[in-house]
Write a protein that binds this DNA or RNA. Structure first.
Lengths: 201, 201
DNA sequence: ACCTGAACACCGTTCAAGT
DNA sequence: ACCTGAACACCGTTCAAGT
């Protein structure tokens, strides 16, 4: 017993996160026990505490990785097209990610932490939000960045809600249908509210 | 030991649910253990299994009660006013409930059940959804009930998403601000999409 | 019939002891 | 320095035994 150092701390962290990812993806949060992770990677559960503070800290790290994946899936969607098309592409990318990894995605929001988030975490969330703001920017002038930020949050939150309810089976309709309606209403409403009846977008 | 029958099964159920409600409201799901509930009501944890199948079943019953409260808080909001005002009132009532009971409300969605829902559960959810559909009905003709149902789900899901993100502190804006924007865009967009530029609502 | 208390099979977490 | 194995203080759940 004791002292193996088959892996550096960084390797060990990666090993743990990879095992945790697989467990959550396949069997959900309930199956994610420290003993199970340790067994899967050939260590003892005590070892995990050399490299993570506790189970919450481990989940936070996993959520960070999931947010990175989500950002990758969602950024750079349909750069060229008009705003409405880009919004639709963005929404579809988000919904697609949720459908592909419902358990990992749920873990981000379902897990109620006891401790506050560390500094490195909020930017990962903000970066995902930022994609919506960029996509929306052409609709708003430089002077209306506040409105743009608000609209971006409104649309993200709405999209998010549809994904939550769809993944709970509480929607009785595809989230894509609903989000298309949302975007259609938003764009049409925006043209009215932004004055006159422009067609540029 | 054994045989007390201080309470009928119905009373016992109510006692358990009341204790559970208080624990979740004050300390969240993590504090809701069978032993803790039993202690609070002066029984032993084994007794809970006479009246609930397991912890999940108990939580489901608690969620049912919360949904009833939510329905009560949300139904009958501003019956007289025009649709936009009623939508705002409905949204405020929902947000108000979530802010007053974030932990009980979260339990409805955060808890990932292993077993499928029993028959009595979905109608409780549907009833809450129904309020939105009723509120929206004046905007749609009898022939467009499908559109109405879709718009209702779209708005519920959006409202829901805002509450989720607000209660996680991930919004950096009040949910009320966002939902007002959502409703404004929806109404303005609807008038355009429903043809012409009616003002009736 | 109803409840208890102990038991079982788990948890997360800590840490002395080993290498 | 790093890891193990046992221990501690919990869980949910079951059930023989008592009244």
């Amino acid at each position: 017993m004791g002292r193996r150092a088959d892996h550096t701390p960084e390797q060990l962290r990666a090993l743990v996160l990879d095992a945790a990812r697989k467990i959550v993806a396949a069997e959900g949060e309930r199956a994610l026990t420290t003993r199970r992770i340790a067994q899967d990677i050939g260590y003892t559960s005590g070892t995990l505490y050399n490299v993570f503070k506790d189970r919450d800290d481990l989940i936070l790290a996993l959520n960070g990785a999931t947010l990175d994946e989500l950002f990758a899936a969602v950024s750079g969607t349909a750069r060229g097209a008009d705003v409405e098309k880009r919004l639709r592409a963005l929404a579809r990318a988000y919904i697609g990610f949720v459908r592909a990894q419902p358990q990992l995605w749920s873990l981000i929001f379902e897990h109620s932490r006891a401790t506050p988030e560390p500094d490195w975490y909020p930017p990962k969330v903000a970066r995902v939000f930022g994609v919506m703001e960029e996509t929306l920017a052409p609709l708003y002038g430089e002077a209306a960045r506040r409105d743009c930020a608000q609209a971006a949050r409104m649309l993200w939150a709405s999209l998010h809600g549809m994904c939550v309810l769809e993944s709970k089976g509480a929607l009785a309709m595809p989230a894509t249908t609903l989000v298309d309606g949302l975007i259609r209403h938003f764009i049409a409403g925006h043209e009215v509210l932004a004055g006159g009846g422009r067609r540029k977008a």
